[in-house]
Amino acid sequence: MTLNRSDRLRRHAVQACVLAAGLWFSSSAWSIDPPQLPQDNSSLSKTNFAIARLHDITNRASELAVQALSMLGINYRYGGTSPDTGLDCSGLVQYVFKEAWGTDLPRTAVEISRVGEKIGKGELQPGDLVFYNTLRRGFSHVGIYLGDGKFIHSPSAGGQVRIEDMDVAYWKKRFNGARRIAADESETK
Rank of each mutant, 00 (worst) to 15 (best):
V18Q: 08
G149T: 00
E164G: 06
A65C: 10
D167F: 05
V142Y: 11
T108M: 11
S28M: 02
E63H: 14
F151H: 12
L69N: 02
W24K: 08
L146A: 11
G177L: 01
N4P: 00
F175H: 03
G127N: 05
G73L: 04
G138K: 15
R136Y: 14
P126A: 01
L124R: 00
G91E: 04
R60W: 15
M166A: 02
S90T: 12
H55M: 12
Q125E: 07
N41Q: 10
V66N: 02
L129F: 07
G79Q: 04
V142P: 09
A169G: 09
S154A: 15
A169W: 14
V96F: 03
N59I: 09
R162I: 02
S43G: 02
A65W: 00
T47M: 13
L146F: 12
D167I: 00
S28N: 09
A52E: 14
I112V: 12
S31F: 13
C89F: 09
Q36E: 08
D167W: 03
A13M: 04
S186I: 11
A68N: 02
T134A: 09
L105H: 08
T188H: 09
A20K: 00
W24H: 13
K173R: 12
V18D: 06
A100S: 11
Y170H: 07
V142F: 11
F131C: 03
I32E: 13
G122P: 03
L44T: 10
R107E: 04
D148N: 15
E111N: 14
T103Y: 08
P155Y: 14
H55D: 06
G86I: 05
R11Q: 03
S6N: 04
P126G: 01
A68F: 01
G86T: 05
R107C: 09
S42V: 03
L87T: 05
G159N: 07
M1I: 00
K150G: 12
W30Q: 12
A157R: 15
I163Y: 04
R136F: 14
I32N: 09
M166C: 02
R180C: 03
R174N: 10
H153C: 13
V66Q: 06
V18N: 10
T81I: 12
I74H: 09
P126C: 01
G159L: 05
I144K: 08
Y95T: 11
G120M: 03
E117G: 01
I163F: 02
K118L: 08
W30H: 07
A52M: 15
R8Y: 00
V96L: 04
W24S: 10
S6G: 00
A109C: 11
R174T: 11
E99F: 07
W30T: 12
G120P: 01
L129I: 03
A16N: 04
A68R: 00
D128F: 04
S140P: 07
Q160T: 13
R60D: 15
I144R: 05
G102P: 14
G80W: 08
Y78E: 15
N48Y: 10
P106E: 11
L54E: 00
L124D: 00
S42Q: 05
P83D: 05
A109R: 05
G159I: 08
G143Q: 11
L64A: 04
Q94E: 02
A182W: 05
L19D: 11
R60L: 14
